[in-house]
């Protein structure tokens, strides 16, 4: 349930490494190994022109492609976790938090805000995998809670874009309970007859998938995203054999009936608008 981002090769995530790849003019696609001109890739919404592999995309970029210009205002930007367990492994949790804030430029593993999409009022939350593996603790839970409250108050739709390794083990049971908290809040949204669109991106696993990500009225995933409860490594360990190709990928989940649609990034806005128009009567004339 809790996440395993610590196990990753640290070098791949170190700030210096990141800087060089940001400065590079050419980027190699993880999937097809094609060398792509970076500016070309950005024009294509970070989707490989050759194989349609969806590269990780920053929250700001999602805001840019989904929301109406200048409509975004952030909610709960000043929320900070309190380290309820005084957790420490090789590093103190409080230190991990401040270094995550410094290296990512984000204040937590989710950014939430009010906006409009095609003039429809929406509360949008985008998770940040770069922030401690997109792990869910008190602040992510509270931001989702406030997102729901805001949506109910404004009569808005809710969209959450997930990419997360699961619950944040440095907050112990407090983090696990955020799954219940988010669930409670989403039943309130439903009670208010407001739509919740869950968009799953690569990767979404653990308690995140097993709570709000899978509770959408409509559940959409980007192509090729890893989506599951247990991580592939854990399953491999359990069953003692390699996993079939494409296992736990978006297309697999669609086939098994757990997603409404797999949507290419370039079609994401249009898809979301269609769902919102269907769900929100007030926007019939808009």
């Amino acid at each position: 349930m809790a996440i395993e981002w610590f196990k990753r090769d640290e070098a791949a995530f170190s700030p210096t490494q990141k800087k060089t790849s940001e400065d590079a003019l050419w980027i190699k696609c993880d999937s097809c190994s094609e060398i792509v001109f970076k500016r070309e890739l950005e024009k294509k919404l970070l989707v490989c022109p050759k194989c349609s592999n969806h590269f990780a995309m920053d929250g700001e970029k999602y805001i840019e492609i989904l929301t109406d210009k200048d409509s975004w205002t952030e909610i709960g930007a000043n929320l900070r976790s309190q380290d309820p367990l005084s957790f420490r492994d090789q590093k103190k949790y409080s230190e991990r938090l401040s270094s995550a804030i410094k290296t990512t430029g984000k204040n937590e593993a989710i950014t939430v805000g009010r906006c409009t999409i095609d003039s429809i009022s929406v509360v949008l939350g985008i998770m940040e995998f770069s922030f401690m593996g997109g792990s869910v603790g008190s602040v992510v839970g509270e931001k989702i809670a406030r997102a729901v409250d805001t949506a109910i108050q404004d009569r808005s739709g809710l969209i959450l874009i997930s990419r997360s390794g699961g619950m944040r083990m440095q907050e112990g049971m407090v983090s696990l309970m955020q799954m219940a908290k988010a669930s409670v809040k989403l039943t309130q949204l439903s009670e208010a007859k407001l739509p919740y669109i869950s968009i799953l991106t690569h990767p979404t696993t653990g308690g995140t998938t097993a709570s709000f990500s899978m509770q959408g009225d409509v559940i959409i995933a980007e192509p090729g995203a890893l989506i599951g409860f247990a991580g592939p490594r854990v399953i491999k360990q359990t069953i003692g054999q390699d996993l079939p190709d494409g296992f736990q990928r978006s297309e697999f989940l669609l086939e098994k009936g757990f997603l409404d649609r797999v949507v290419h990034r370039k079609d994401l806005r249009q898809t979301v608008v269609q769902v919102l128009r269907f769900a929100m009567k007030d926007n019939d004339s808009a």
Binding site: F212, M214, I235, Q248
Partner: peptide
Amino acid sequence: PGAYPGLGAEERGQAEAIARSLYEMAR
């Protein structure tokens, strides 16, 4: 010890089943 992390469990939607249960219990 936890929900079973196996092939069939994933295939049949372990995450969805848990998420649904949380949701139904909430209301």
